[in-house]
C-alpha cells in the first residue's frame, strides 16, 4: 500500500529538479534533456491518478505525451544540429541573436 500522495511528491521532486537543470545548465543539449525529465515527471502523475481513479484515460494521455515528445526530440535535435553548423557552439549564452 503506497499513498498516491507519495507518487505525486516524487513527481514534484523530479519536476523541480528538471526546472533547476533547465535554468542552470548552459548547454543546449542538456537543457533539452531536462525538458524530457519534466515530461517524465508529469507522466508519472498521470499514471498515478489513472491508477487512483481506476480509469484508463490517464494512460492514454501518457501515450500521447510520449508521441509528442518523440516528435519534439526529432525536430529539436535537428534544430540543435543546424545551430551548431552556423555558430560552432552549443552554449546558450553565445546563441542570443536570431541572425548574426
Amino acid at each position: 500500500m503506497v499513498p498516491t500522495a507519495y507518487y505525486l511528491i516524487l513527481a514534484a521532486m523530479l519536476f523541480s529538479i528538471g526546472i533547476a537543470a533547465f535554468l542552470i545548465k548552459r548547454n543546449v543539449i542538456t537543457i533539452f534533456i531536462s525538458i524530457e525529465l519534466m515530461l517524465n515527471a508529469v507522466n508519472l502523475t498521470f499514471v498515478a491518478f489513472a491508477h487512483m481513479w481506476h480509469q484508463v484515460s490517464g494512460q492514454i494521455f501518457v501515450f500521447f505525451v510520449m508521441v509528442v515528445a518523440a516528435a519534439e526530440a526529432a525536430v529539436g535535435l535537428a534544430i540543435i544540429i543546424s545551430i551548431y553548423r552556423t555558430r560552432q557552439t552549443l552554449n546558450v549564452d553565445e546563441i542570443d541573436l536570431m541572425k548574426s
Partner: peptide, 27 residues
Amino acid sequence: VGIPGAAAIFCLLSFVFLSERGALKSS
C-alpha cells in the same frame, strides 16, 4: 534564479499534495 525558483515550485506542489492527502487514496 534556478535553485530558489525550483525550491519554491517544489514547496508549492508538495504543500498542495500533502494538504489534499485525505482526498487521495492509496494504491
